[in-house]
Design a protein around this nucleic acid. Structure first.
Length: 298
DNA sequence: AAGCCGTGGAG
DNA sequence: TCTCCAAGGCT
């Protein structure tokens, strides 16, 4: 038995019942789930995904609404630029691919917000192709089970793809099952903090376990700070805009943060990123919410 | 190619 | 409380 075989057997008995894994899920549904799951936990994505798919069952449906609606529907999933990119994705899919999510990896990777992981995930999980799909879970599982190291590097490298490729069964459909199984294993058994080795199908062969579960060497990677950063200020500003029905005067936005310099920088950043739009008269709206006939300030 | 980009929950 | 981290992407 190979690692892939063991993982697939384990997955068949232990996989979570997630809505985007239902057999009737469209490629669009898979794409939406993958983008939402970028850095956001499953429990928070699930209800958001259901609402999103009910409102916009196809790329064309989303493309017909302004980006502002996508940003509002995104709610508090975090990193709202993903909502913008998903909207841009829908527009691109309509324009370039007749409204159908493309199946070729190359075309997927050309879509906004679709990177190495997401492109391969859609090609694999929506279309059943054989690609190494490497996310943080897969990196951790392979790193531990194969290399015997406690933790993987911070980002997916070409070497990671090569390593996973070597573990994939030759058959397309089986390879796709192996990929989702490795991910699931990393998500619920071979976790970052307290791995449940007793429940792991690899526990007799895992190189990390066989060498006594050594701790990570050297200084840990410095964690990102959040409190007091521009990201927090952007979040506060956008929160106001999301709930507003009409243009929001700058005076209202000024109340969310004391430091004037940082506040201005955060606001300019949101405009720069295309999340919000300045109107004449010192008012702001979410992108695409400008009242018709309103003159935009440059 | 490090650093930026939100948010909330677990320990 | 505070730290870590959760199916990354982009510059």
């Amino acid at each position: 038995m190979t690692l892939a075989d063991d993982a697939i057997t384990w997955y068949a008995a232990n996989a979570r019942d997630l809505p985007w894994r239902q057999p009737d899920t469209t490629p669009w549904g898979v794409l939406v789930s993958e983008v939402m799951l970028q850095q956001t936990p499953v429990v928070r994505v699930e209800p958001a995904w259901r609402s999103w798919m009910t409102r916009w069952p196809t790329p064309a449906a989303l493309a017909d609404d302004p980006p502002s609606e996508a940003i509002r529907m995104w709610g508090r999933l975090g990193y709202p630029r993903r909502a913008m990119r998903l909207h841009a994705c829908a527009v691109a899919i309509v324009e370039r691919h007749g409204g159908q999510v493309p199946s070729s990896l190359e075309q997927l990777l050309a879509l906004p917000g679709v990177g190495t992981y997401t492109g391969r995930a859609v090609a694999t999980f929506a279309y059943g192709q054989r690609h190494p799909v490497v996310d943080t879970n897969v990196r951790r599982v392979v790193c531990r089970a194969v290399e015997g190291k406690p933790d993987a590097g911070p980002a997916t490298t070409a070497a990671d793809l090569t390593a996973m490729e070597a573990l994939l069964p030759p058959d397309e459909a089986t390879a796709a099952r192996a990929s989702i199984a490795f991910m699931e294993l990393g998500a619920i058994v071979c976790t970052a903090r307290a791995p449940k080795c007793v429940d792991c199908p690899f526990n007799q062969v895992c190189a990390w376990r066989l060498s006594g579960l050594p701790l990570p060497e050297g200084p840990s990677r410095k964690p990102q700070r959040y409190a007091g950063t521009d990201r927090q200020v952007r979040g506060l500003l956008l929160e106001v805009l999301r709930h507003a029905t009409g243009p929001v005067p700058r005076q209202r936005l000024d109340m969310v943060w004391q430091d004037e310099v940082q506040r201005a920088r955060a606001l300019a950043g949101l405009v720069e990123d295309g999340l919000i739009q300045p109107l004449g008269g010192d008012d702001f709206v979410l992108a695409g919410d400008a009242p018709s006939g309103e003159v935009q300030a440059l």
